[in-house]
Structure formats: structure tokens, C-alpha cells
Simulated assay, not measured.
Amino acid sequence: MIVLLVIIHVVVCLFLTGVVLLQQGKSADMAAAFGGQGSQTAFGPRGAANLLTRLTTWSAVVFMITSISLTVLMSRSANHRSVLSDLQTQSSPAKK
């Protein structure tokens, strides 16, 4: 179960990164107002923004759900150990 969630989490991370990088900045609308690349988009001037916004939202939701699920599953796992569990504390007497 954990391996499947890790695989889904990594795929969603890569997809989310790609979708965010594909989005145009808010200043691109100003360039389109003066005739710069506004009519040559594949989805139309507003269609791509809506599609990319929805893809970003849903991938962010899946990312958060997988993150929380992995945290809960790893905390309940029997073989989960702390980094400091092997550290042995040695107390020495106080020096006078």
C-alpha cells in the first residue's frame, strides 16, 4: 500500500510541476491586449487558463491527500523507527 502511494505521489508531483510551468503569468494578458500571441493559442485565449487551473487544483488536492496518507501510514507502520533510536546516551558524572 505504501509503495503504491509513493508511486502515485511521485507521478502527481511531476505532473503538478509540469502543469504549473505551463501556466502563463498574469502579465501575459496585457501582452495579448496589444496583439501579442493572444489569438494563436491552442485552447483559445481563456480556455487554456481554465483547463490548466482545474488541472492544477485537482493535482494539488491529490498531492495533499497522498502526503497526508503517507504520513499517517508511516506513523502507524511497525518497522518505522526514529533517526535517534540507535543513539545511545551516555551520562558522565559532573566535573567539580
Rank of each mutant, 00 (worst) to 15 (best):
M1I: 07
M1K: 07
I2R: 14
I2V: 09
V3S: 00
L4V: 07
L4D: 00
L5P: 04
L5F: 13
V6W: 03
I7M: 03
I7E: 00
H9D: 05
H9R: 07
V11W: 00
V11G: 00
V11S: 08
V12W: 02
C13V: 06
F15H: 03
T17G: 15
V20I: 15
L22T: 10
Q24P: 11
Q24L: 08
G25L: 04
S27G: 07
A28Y: 13
D29E: 09
D29M: 15
M30C: 15
M30L: 15
A32W: 12
A32H: 13
A33E: 07
A33N: 09
A33T: 13
F34H: 07
G35F: 04
S39I: 09
Q40N: 07
T41W: 06
F43Q: 10
G44C: 11
G44M: 10
P45Y: 04
P45M: 05
G47F: 12
A49N: 10
L51H: 04
T53Q: 06
T53M: 13
R54K: 09
L55S: 03
T56I: 05
T57F: 15
W58E: 05
A60Y: 13
V61A: 15
V61G: 05
V62F: 12
F63L: 12
M64R: 07
T66E: 01
S67G: 11
I68S: 01
T71C: 13
V72K: 06
M74E: 01
M74C: 11
H80V: 13
R81N: 09
R81G: 07
V83F: 11
L84F: 14
D86Y: 12
D86F: 12
Q90G: 07
Q90T: 14
